[in-house]
């Protein structure tokens, strides 16, 4: 007897889609955690960051402690990627971070952030308060 395959509802498809996204996000996050949050060669540390996608814009925050506001740079590398960097008020050595077995010092925080939806980088708005960088980028809705 032939078994008729049950048709999947819209909600089933959406569930599958979001589960896939969640798995992808977990894989990405684990791959980030497998890398150190610092780079001895470039003397840079990777800052913590957060991103929120709303209907109108993408809001990104980056924690930039011990940095000078005047040194913060937010540069679009392409339509979807931002390069963020900031010089520290002073150089930080490994031993100050509790790692006495490593040699090296850091003088900047640096990261690349990829935006998951099309945005208008030209209309980006940037602010900095208490060492937190906040970037607002309007979304570009394709017609």
């Amino acid at each position: 007897m032939a078994i008729r395959k049950r048709e999947r509802s819209f909600f089933d498809l959406m569930d599958t889609y979001f589960e896939g996204l969640e798995e992808e996000f977990d894989r990405w996050r684990e791959s980030i955690m497998d890398m150190p949050s610092w780079n001895e060669k470039t003397c840079a540390m990777r800052p913590l960051s957060d991103m929120k996608v709303t209907a109108r814009e993408v809001i990104m925050t980056v924690d930039l402690p011990l940095t000078l506001e005047s040194s913060v740079q937010v540069k679009p590398l392409d339509e979807r990627t931002l390069e963020i960097s900031a010089e520290m008020k002073r150089k930080i050595q490994f031993k100050e971070l509790g790692a006495t077995h490593r040699k090296g010092e850091f003088h900047k925080l640096h990261c690349h952030k990829r935006v998951p939806v099309p945005v208008d980088m030209d209309k980006m708005h940037v602010s900095y308060k208490k060492g937190i960088l906040e970037v607002h980028i309007p979304r570009k809705h394709e017609r």
Partner: peptide, 18 residues
Amino acid sequence: KGEEIRLKARDVMQRTQQ
């Protein structure tokens, strides 16, 4: 020492998020 603490605690914060 707040800013130094924020810098030092990044890795633990990231693992805590998970």
